[in-house]
Design a protein around this nucleic acid. Sequence first.
DNA 1: GATATTTGTTGCAATATCGCACGAAACGGA
DNA 2: TCCGTTTCGTGCGATATTGCAACAAATATC
Lengths: 253, 253
Amino acid sequence: MATKQGDMMGGLAKGLRVIEAFTSDTPRLSIAEAAAITGLDRATTRRCLLTLAEHGYCAYDGKFFTVTPRVLRLGTACLATMPLPRIVQPWLDRLSEEIGQSTSVAILDGSEIVYVARAAQRKVMSIALMPGSRLPAYCTSMGRVMLAALADSEARTHLESGPLLPRTSQTLTQVDAIMAELGEIRSQGFAAVDQEVEQGLRSIAVPVRNARGMVVAALNTGLAASLAPMEEIIRTYLPPLRSVSLELRTVLS
Amino acid sequence: MATKQGDMMGGLAKGLRVIEAFTSDTPRLSIAEAAAITGLDRATTRRCLLTLAEHGYCAYDGKFFTVTPRVLRLGTACLATMPLPRIVQPWLDRLSEEIGQSTSVAILDGSEIVYVARAAQRKVMSIALMPGSRLPAYCTSMGRVMLAALADSEARTHLESGPLLPRTSQTLTQVDAIMAELGEIRSQGFAAVDQEVEQGLRSIAVPVRNARGMVVAALNTGLAASLAPMEEIIRTYLPPLRSVSLELRTVLS
DNA sequence: GATATTTGTTGCAATATCGCACGAAACGGA
DNA sequence: TCCGTTTCGTGCGATATTGCAACAAATATC
């Protein structure tokens, strides 16, 4: 019953691959370039792009295609349908004000975390994070908290699905080392990451559970490593994070 | 040459319509519901949804479909390819700090504005705005600034493309009245909107031009109406907004 | 609890798409 | 400018998709 041949639409799947071919590294694509990235035939890629252009998702200057803000509608359809951002934002704002640091909530999508809400205070990371932004799960505090909530086999699958790049000199890049860390996180109930995502950034995260106790997201805060040692960060910020997580548990269905 | 029959992919266009059927009002859809919204045949809708599910864009519990965070990738493909957010964010942060108010940058997409960057200070609006959020152009300061940059006929087309709802008692809802306001904005170089989007919110916006002088976005700030009369807002905040807009002009290609 | 309505699924003929192959056009390097 | 290379656009047979119609299962209505 699953994946029946006649129930699939090849054209749709191909078109979505073409949309995803547009990244910050390749914001403008010719037909041949898009074909090379997606692995589709040039003729097919061309038809996809022309269709996307016809419906306003792409702009075409006769040579290059670029995606238009219209495609944002596709993505925000998701954020819009997700009650989580709207629910957590007030808590995030209050928490951020209380502790004087940026706070974020993210969910897990495969081996990546996706920011769904954020209350920014100061800029500590070089990258600008906003709802929809993605970071790999293996090296982020929120990612590890959510991976730790999965079965070992499932977490391992996600860790093995992509390259574990050493983003800094301290990044754990061995699956077994990260699996061991997940065990630690599971028993202590939070994740602490010391400059593994970015040099000079320390962060801690706690799981966010719904009323049934399932981990549905992660809540974190991060600050410049120069401001405090990890131990002090945990002592200072873990209690308020846990407190907000507990409150959220009662309001999340 | 444009819109040639054989160069279009019906399946892709239909699938995108199905994705857009998911909104905050209708976050969970059965096959028949999605078919009703999109106007597609039930069989076709089913094939679209199954394809989306197969590729991880939808989740299916046997009865209802929901979009997954995976579709955010489609939308953020756009934000990621857009250099604008990354470029303006530092300016926005500094401006926001300097004037002590929230600032935003948005672009125009048809008759709507789309937030692409934002530096939040205090919460004045009831709705949470973030990159990707949309508001109608006709009643927002940024929307009017960008409509004013278009040819009259084009601006009018956009104004007439959707209903001009009175969001507050002060919202302009007549096309001619808004067109007159656009003329005013064009000559004075900024837009001031007094509680037309939301009761108790005043905002002003200036155009953001690229090096060639084309209006590519709008920059605004807004604050609670109780804090200052419009005149004072203009006197206090217009100069710093203009200053940032001028600086941006030199860095935007 | 029986009937009417809606919904999910499938068969099938009409129709559209796929990807290969080919010619034309654009590009790049000497 | 010339030639080699790449890219674009298109014709076509093989193949996949479309939407109608029909039916069974699930809901809704009385």
